[in-house]
């Protein structure tokens, strides 16, 4: 009886241990052709240089866009919403766009962190020695950049939406005077 319990315990322990060793992968490793491997190796140095440059220009772009988006929200959208409310005017639609904009900004912020981490990993891969690992890291970075680009586009669209909503408000206000 005791032996049976020990065996069961051992089986459970092995099962738990094997579960711990199964590490989820972001995506299955892509197999690349020999032609691609050769091209990665051939253009390794120039690609690393251009990726480094991209890393720097993206850092600048992120700060620049971030400042612009915060300025639009904190120094234009929010003050107008507050002023409309203080004057007892209906700015409900404008408030809702501002809220959506701030939520989207949080996504943009997080997506940039993910992208930058992926790009830093890509830059750390030696493309001459490990072309397959380099290509897989490139795919991860590309995916992260796509998500970042989408959240950036969504922010720009919300800035446009706010302007359109403001134009409607302006026309309605002028007509009511």
């Amino acid at each position: 009886m005791k032996l049976l319990t020990r065996k069961r315990l051992l089986i459970v322990a092995v099962a738990v241990a094997s579960l711990l060793f199964v590490v989820p992968n972001s995506h299955a490793e892509v197999i690349i052709t020999q032609r691609q491997t050769k091209a990665i190796r051939t253009h390794c140095v120039e690609n690393q240089a251009s990726l480094n440059q991209l890393h720097q220009s993206d850092a600048f772009l992120r700060i620049d866009r971030g400042n612009l988006y915060r300025t639009i929200s904190d120094k234009l959208m929010t003050p107008l919403n507050t002023r409309l409310a203080a004057n007892k005017l209906d700015g409900g639609a404008l408030i809702s766009i501002t809220k959506e904009f701030n939520d989207q900004y949080k996504r943009f912020y997080a997506n940039y962190i993910t992208y930058d981490t992926a790009l830093a990993k890509l830059l750390n891969v030696d493309c001459t020695k490990e072309p397959v690992r380099f290509y897989n890291a490139l795919l991860d970075t590309r995916e992260a950049r796509q998500q970042l680009g989408e959240s950036n586009d969504a922010l720009v669209q919300l800035i446009r939406d706010y302007k359109n909503q403001f134009d409607d408000f302006y026309v309605a206000y002028m007509e009511s005077q």
Binding site: S50, L138, R145
Partner: peptide
């Protein structure tokens, strides 16, 4: 900003 163009296979000559 952050268009996908910069990381395409073509831009990295792959």
């Amino acid at each position: 900003a952050f268009s996908g163009e910069a990381l395409t296979d073509a831009s990295l000559q792959i």
